[in-house]
Amino acid sequence: MSRTDTAPGLAARSAPYRAVIASRVSSQRSHRTSFRVDLLSSLLVGLVELAEVAVLYLQVERIGGLDLAAALLVFAIADVGFSVADMVVGHCDNIPTYVRAGTLDVFYLRPQPLLLQLMTSDLQLRRIARAAVGVVALVVALGLTDPPFTVRTVALLVVALVSATLCFAAMFVWAGGVQFFLIDGAETTNAFVYGGRYAATQPATVWGRPLLVVFGFFFPMAFTAYLPVVTLLDLDGGQQLGLPGWIGWTAPLAALWAWALAAVSWRLGVRHYQGGGG
């Protein structure tokens, strides 16, 4: 296919996805009461997760070199990233259900990539409410930690938020690929996807070596929020881990690594799938 074909083709090729997403949006808005309860629940999920962090830091001055304000900033970046990723690819969690029910075969029949179909199959608007908690926390945390309002600060925040979202999205896709093999054992991947979310809100300095290997580097959760905040606020967490002060800027590399893992896992999983028969 030559380059000239793809440019005008993009709008046409994305048309089915746009149509599907528009129909999801209108279908969710049509059941208003149910949608409101969903929004409220999602808001509460965000608040409870915030409380889990805040309660601990209200008890003691600092944990692992973070005070309440800095911990709030770490939480906020991780939470915004996770909420957005969850909204877009979170329903990869449903793969075992689809596989068991045999409904996954339908996706294979359509002439569109499987992952794109899954992404648009169940876009949950209510998850916006959860991201809202993260955004408010981010604004408050920035007010409390008061980093200098410079190009560097803004750039680092943007890099961190985009990388965090990409990292968490990669985790969901990685887990999705593994679930083709595990089916009943899907909870195994929860340990790393949701465990990873929990880990991302912690200062990596409190981890022992095994946790550092798993959540610091293999699944680069420390790079989603903690290390960018260390660089942003000029804390000594990086040095304690033997990392340079500018380590937070390398978050995009971590996202790249996470997506490499996700791509391998997804390809193997999709090829492994044998169909529901029938």
Partner: peptide, 26 residues
């Protein structure tokens, strides 16, 4: 559901270690 139980064990233990890290530090 043996595989499910194993998955649960992995999840429980992983979260346990993360809780140990942050709560011990606290």
């Amino acid at each position: 559901y043996r595989l499910a139980a194993l998955g649960g064990l992995v999840a429980n233990a992983t979260f346990g270690f993360l809780k140990v890290a942050i709560l011990f530090a606290a």
